[in-house]
Design a binder for these strands. Structure first.
Lengths: 238, 238
DNA sequence: AATTGGGATGTGGTATACCAGGTACGCAAA
DNA sequence: TTTGCGTACCTGGTATACCACATCCCAATT
């Protein structure tokens, strides 16, 4: 045994551009973009100064954010955080449903029994006291359940593509979870999805995932008439 | 009715970055990246000089290409055109199937009778002589048919997301079209999809689109054992 | 002859200066 | 008071210089 056995390559791929991207993304997600008089303008020079880097990495990070749909770059006018309209959110839910239902279909073949057992264990952890559980916590677990299905499909691209929507879905699901009796119903749905997966029934698993997500779609369609309310929770709490 | 109704903002968003992106993308797609000794390295400075712009717009274009998966940027080592493995191509087909089958489902509700009539007219145009038709031409029509379905879903995000895969799918479909009896079978599939749409049968339309695309998946899975052959057609022709 | 260490060279990463287009505001004229 | 215009300033777009790291080559050493 040589010393090399315990040595792994150091992460050498660190770039300011990537770091800046993460920081900005986090900042945007944590700011209340739906507050009526929130400041949505991002100034390249100001950000550069604030993060103590030059404009170059800032610009590349902003370009990436623009590609992900978080900001809009208006040439010579400014960079603005993008408010999602209700319709855009609905489209994201539909697209998510498309990806995850296909993932479920494939998972009935690709996932091992051990995988499904682990998934069931994970889902059950929150089944008994979902209503009383901390919403924030359950919401995270909820998201994770859906991501797990995407992983179990064995198709990385499905997950990667969904991850692009993940940022938005996280906020959406959290918001919707607190409404009416959705948390309890959600748990029941998850169990049914699990059973379909365990039965290796591709059509059924696919359908249940789709219908589960589309219920979120319908819920948003009915209740989120004005999007400005999206960010109000945080505002009122603070 | 005011004059404003017929006035759209003039395209003032021309930037070198965008233009560079298009040019590079076109160039990459037209080069035979699967040729065993193709030069896959892209040099920022060389490209800048060749296109008579500075490195800045080149870099932003390359970053975008990297995000789309066409190139890989290795810090301080170089930018390389990415060869897709068979497995990655298969994943793209699966993801495409997920998006388009959902689109078909929605199209059964969102598309107007006139839309479907136009789609049928379009599909029929190549039905009679698909086998004899110029493959290149039919392949384009084939892609267009699928894109139309995505459009008819009324969900822009579905189409946008699929467009990200479009670049690759185009090459894949074209390559696969010339093999065995796929062209003729493809036409028959399209007609069946159309009939499901016209019957406003969401489940059926969704299933037929999925199975149609997954047939492409299976075909590739079986026949494309070595990916280097992907680019050989052009090489042999030239 | 094989190995190794250092420097030359090339690459993308970053910082910065400058440019052109866009906005806003104030002043002047009607 | 309203309208028109001009200017000052602000923004992102672009060009360019410099930096740190990766690689390759060659000479010095064993």
């Amino acid at each position: 045994m040589s010393i090399g056995d315990s040595l792994n390559p150091i992460s050498v791929n660190f770039t300011l551009k990537d770091h800046t991207f993460e920081v900005l993304k986090e900042a945007i997600l944590n700011m209340n973009i739906y507050h009526p008089d929130a400041d949505l303008r991002l100034d390249e020079r100001q950000l550069a100064e604030r993060l103590a880097v030059s404009r170059t990495p800032i610009r590349e990070a902003l370009a990436r954010l623009a590609h992900e749909g978080l900001v809009q770059i208006a040439p010579r006018r400014g960079v603005f955080v993008l408010r999602k309209s209700r319709d855009e959110i609905l489209q994201m839910v539909v697209t998510w449903a498309a990806l995850e239902s296909m993932a479920a279909r494939m998972a009935t073949k690709a996932a091992s029994d051990a995988d499904l057992k682990a998934l069931r264990r994970f889902a059950m952890r929150h089944s008994s006291d979902a209503a009383r559980a901390e919403l924030e916590e359950y919401s995270d677990a909820n998201i994770k359940f859906h991501q797990k299905i995407l992983e179990l499909s064995g198709c990385e691209l499905l997950k990667t593509t969904a991850d692009g929507l993940f940022t938005h879905m996280k906020a959406i699901r959290r918001r919707a979870m607190g409404e009416s009796d959705r948390a309890r119903k959600s748990v029941a749905d998850h169990i049914e999805i699990l059973e379909a997966l365990e039965a290796r029934d591709a059509d059924l698993a696919s359908r249940r995932v789709r219908e589960h997500t589309m219920r979120l779609h319908d819920h948003i369609h009915k209740t989120w008439t004005r999007l400005e309310n999206l960010g109000s929770a945080k505002t009122e709490a603070g």
